[in-house]
Amino acid sequence: MLLDLHTHSVKSDDGRAKVENYCKWIRKKELPLDGFVLTEHRQFDTNSDYRHLEDEYDLLILKASEVETDFGHVLVFGVNDDLLAALDFSDIRLPIDTVLAEAERCGAFAAPCHPGRKRVGLFSHYEEQGIVDGVHTVEVLNGGSIPGEDEWSLQRAEDLGYRGFGGSDSHVVSRIGLCATEFPDEIITSVDDLVDALTGGNFQPISLRAETEIK
């Protein structure tokens, strides 16, 4: 399966994309995505139900969150009531150690995103504060990266032995699918399936930039 693990809708304060418009764009442009994950900033959207869009467009639509920590931004997959009670998702200085530990305790999966980005990326904080124990997976391909950021992310992840995944970090419709993650041996139909697949480690980051820009 091919999933875009990092997208934002109008639910995020800087998002301008409606979820249905993402679906329409994927089908109009014939992108090879099987689905996408909505990772809204500093919150978890407990109210929205996208099952009707999943059925209409034959796409998997899952929900996660992007939180902000003292070591940059982190995506959290598998958010549940226990994790919502343990963390204040609106806090822009969550301790990354706490996020990683609580995610694991609650059966979720936490991984830093765009780690090569200045100020909000994990690796820029490593330069000043040292390496964080407990990180094992990072987003190495990000559709919003400027030249050099993904290259640094890929190199540092390799040096540190981290697994890598990809996501578009789309905030507008036309950016979805620029980067994604391939799960070659998995059938993912739920957030629990996604957490299991990420934990299992059999995935790889994919860049679809050229294909997306051509269409």
Rank of each mutant, 00 (worst) to 15 (best):
P147S: 11
H171Q: 00
E149F: 08
H171E: 00
I131R: 15
K215E: 09
S153P: 05
D14I: 00
I214M: 10
C106E: 09
G130H: 08
K215V: 14
S48V: 08
E40A: 01
L160Y: 10
A103Y: 08
D14Q: 02
I206G: 05
L83R: 14
C113E: 11
S207V: 10
V120K: 15
T137W: 03
H73W: 07
T69G: 14
E54M: 14
E213P: 03
Q129L: 13
D45N: 13
F123D: 09
H52T: 12
H136S: 15
P184Q: 13
H171I: 00
T7R: 00
K28C: 05
S174G: 10
G148W: 07
V19P: 04
A157L: 12
S65A: 15
T181F: 02
G166R: 07
E128I: 09
P147C: 08
V76K: 08
R156M: 14
H136I: 06
W152R: 15
H136D: 15
D196A: 15
H41K: 04
E40S: 02
L3A: 02
I214S: 12
Q43I: 09
D45R: 04
D133I: 03
S124C: 07
I26F: 02
G121M: 03
E68L: 06
I92G: 02
L100K: 03
K28H: 09
I187G: 05
K215D: 07
D91M: 08
T98H: 02
N47Y: 13
G164L: 05
N202Q: 13
R175H: 14
L160N: 05
P184C: 11
E128V: 06
D193K: 04
D193T: 11
L84C: 04
R175M: 11
L198G: 03
V74Q: 13
T189E: 15
L94Y: 06
T98W: 01
E20D: 07
L60K: 11
P205K: 11
R175Q: 13
P205C: 13
I146P: 01
R16P: 00
N142I: 06
L53Y: 01
D97N: 15
H8L: 04
V135F: 08
H8Y: 07
D192C: 10
G177V: 06
D81E: 14
D88M: 06
T189G: 14
P147H: 06
L62H: 04
I187R: 12
D133G: 15
H8M: 03
G116L: 08
V74M: 13
D14Y: 00
R27P: 07
Y50S: 03
D185P: 04
F183C: 12
R175L: 07
E20P: 03
V132G: 00
H6N: 04
G78Y: 08
F123A: 10
D49V: 10
H52S: 15
I146M: 13
Q129I: 06
L38I: 12
D169F: 03
C106K: 08
